[in-house]
Amino acid sequence: MSSLKGKVALITGAGGRKGIGRATALKLAALGADLAITDFARPQTDLPPQERGEQWRGIESVAKEARKHGHKCTTIFCDLSKSVEIRDLIDEVISQFGKIDILINNARAIIGKDRVPVWELDEAEWHHFLDINLTAVYLAIKYAAPHMIERGQGGRIVNTASDASKRGKATSSAYSSTKFGLLGLTQCAALDLAPHKITVNAVCPGSVNTDRLSYQEQATADEQGIPLETYRAQLVEQLGQANPLGRIVESEDVANLIAFLSSDDAPMITGQAYNVNGGTLFH
C-alpha cells in the first residue's frame, strides 16, 4: 500500500479501545499520515467495562499510540448531533494542519434503545440515529469538501456503513434506515465531487468485535445475570462459528480497507460500498 506521508486525515468516532476508529487511526499513522481524531465525551455509564476508570482515556489514549509512529495527532471532542460543532471541528483541523486530505466518517449512534418494532420506536430515538449516522456525515462532507476543492489536490472520503446498509432486519428500523441512507449519500457525493478528483466510498462491516457498548447487549447480559464481558465473549464465539471464514471481523480488518480507499492506490474507485464480513453477505 502506498505511503500517506504528508497527508492529513480526520477520523470521527475514534475513541473506542477496540473500535474501527482507533484501528484506522493507527493504520493511517503507520502509513505516514498526520491525524485529527474526534469522539463524543461520553459518561462512564455509556462506556464498555474495559474503558471505564482512568486506564483508558478515549481519543487521548489513541493519540498517544498514534504519535509513536512519529507523526502529529491532535484530539478534538465533538458532539456530532450539533451542526455548529461539526463546522467548528472542520475549521479547527484546517487551522491546525492547513488542509484535510482524508475524511473518515466513522462515528455511529449507540445501538440498543432503537431495538424495538417500528411502531414502538420513540421518535426522539429515530431523530438521534438520523443525526449521528446520517446528518453528521452530510455535514462533515459539506464543510470539508470546499476546502478540498479549493486546494485542487483531490481527496478521499470514506464512510463507515454496515451490512445493515444492504439488508433490513426486524427491530432495526432506525439503524438500518440511516445506514441505507448513508449509501445513497455516498453515491451522490461521489458524483458531485468526482470533477474535483475527490473520491467518496463506504465500507460495510458485518458484526465486528469492537466491544463498543450496546444497550441491547447490556440488557441481555442483565437478563441472564452475567457480566457484560461474559456475554460479549459468548457472542463473539457464536458469531465466529457462524462465519464462513471461521471468526468474527476485527476492527483491523475494516481499517485495512479504509486505508486502501484513502490511499493513492485507489484513484478510480468512487461511489462504492465494500463488504467486510467474512462471507455473510455478498451484494
Rank of each mutant, 00 (worst) to 15 (best):
P227Y: 06
I149D: 13
L257W: 05
A63M: 07
R108I: 04
L10G: 13
Q187R: 15
E125M: 06
G112W: 01
A109Y: 02
G184P: 11
R52P: 13
Q55K: 15
L47S: 08
I86S: 08
T270M: 00
F97P: 07
N133L: 06
P43F: 03
V8L: 07
Y231S: 03
P205G: 08
R67E: 15
A30V: 00
T74Y: 00
A221E: 13
D34L: 01
P49Y: 07
A194C: 11
L103E: 12
A202K: 01
G15R: 12
I269D: 03
L121F: 00
A189T: 04
V84L: 11
K99D: 11
P227K: 09
K82T: 03
I110A: 03
I269S: 09
T186F: 01
A144I: 00
Q216Y: 15
T280V: 15
A109V: 03
K5C: 10
R151Q: 12
T135V: 02
Q187G: 14
I269P: 02
E120F: 00
I59K: 13
R57W: 04
Q216T: 04
A164H: 11
Y138V: 01
S176N: 09
D253R: 11
S81W: 00
D264P: 07
R151F: 04
P117A: 07
Q234A: 15
A41V: 07
S263E: 00
A170Y: 11
I102Q: 11
V158W: 10
A25N: 09
V276K: 02
F282C: 01
S263K: 10
A136H: 05
S81D: 01
R247D: 13
L139E: 14
M1S: 14
S162N: 12
N133T: 06
A161M: 05
K166G: 11
C78G: 04
G13N: 12
T199D: 02
L134E: 02
L28N: 11
A221W: 12
K169W: 04
D39Q: 13
F40T: 06
T220L: 14
C78F: 01
Q234R: 07
D264L: 12
I258C: 09
I258Q: 09
W56T: 05
L35I: 07
G19M: 04
N243R: 10
R67Q: 14
L228M: 11
I258N: 14
I104T: 01
A242C: 08
Q96E: 05
I157F: 10
G181P: 12
G21I: 06
D114Y: 01
I102E: 08
I11H: 09
D222P: 03
G70H: 13
T270G: 06
V236I: 15
F129R: 03
G152Y: 10
A41W: 07
E223I: 06
I198L: 13
T45M: 04
Q55Y: 02
P48R: 10
D122F: 02
A136E: 10
V254M: 06
V208Y: 03
F97H: 14
C188D: 00
K179V: 00
C78A: 12
G279R: 03
E51Y: 12
T24H: 10
L193A: 12
R87W: 05
L103N: 05
E54P: 10
G16I: 00
L257A: 08
D46L: 14
F260N: 10
P227M: 11
Q44V: 01
N159Y: 10
R167S: 12
P48K: 08
